[in-house]
Amino acid sequence: MLTISRALYEKITEHARRDHPDEACGVIAGPAGSDSPVRYIPMLNAARSPTFYEFDSHELLRVWREMDDNDEEAVVIYHSHTATEAYPSRTDISYAGEPQAHYVLVSTRDETETEFRSYRILDGVVTEEPVAIKE
């Protein structure tokens, strides 16, 4: 299960709405081993595409080093799908390289309703999990 604060949940959905129709992406870091998302880090989509996202490689190195120095890890890795459902694509599965992360998918295909779902992706196997929003 992913437990996330209302404030962080809204930051993710707002980012996805703002970048629509391009895909938005980012990380929420938390203390290593805590499974608790705390620090919101929106990332640039270097692909600037409605059907693909990729963290800029230099920004990735900077942010991952920063997390390492702070004894943090990527608790949530999020991105949006802008015309399809919030379910991991084959591309998402083949790239998933952070075994501890909750992969959050947001869909902005509907103008008013934002779909927000979370998954574990391990060795090519996708498992959806419930999302609990803390008020």
Binding site: F55, L60, W64, I77, Y95, G97
Partner: peptide, 12 residues
């Protein structure tokens, strides 16, 4: 030398 998984994906 630092190795990191690329973070990428998308609907495509």
């Amino acid at each position: 030398v630092t190795v990191l998984p690329a973070v990428a994906g998308g609907a495509r």
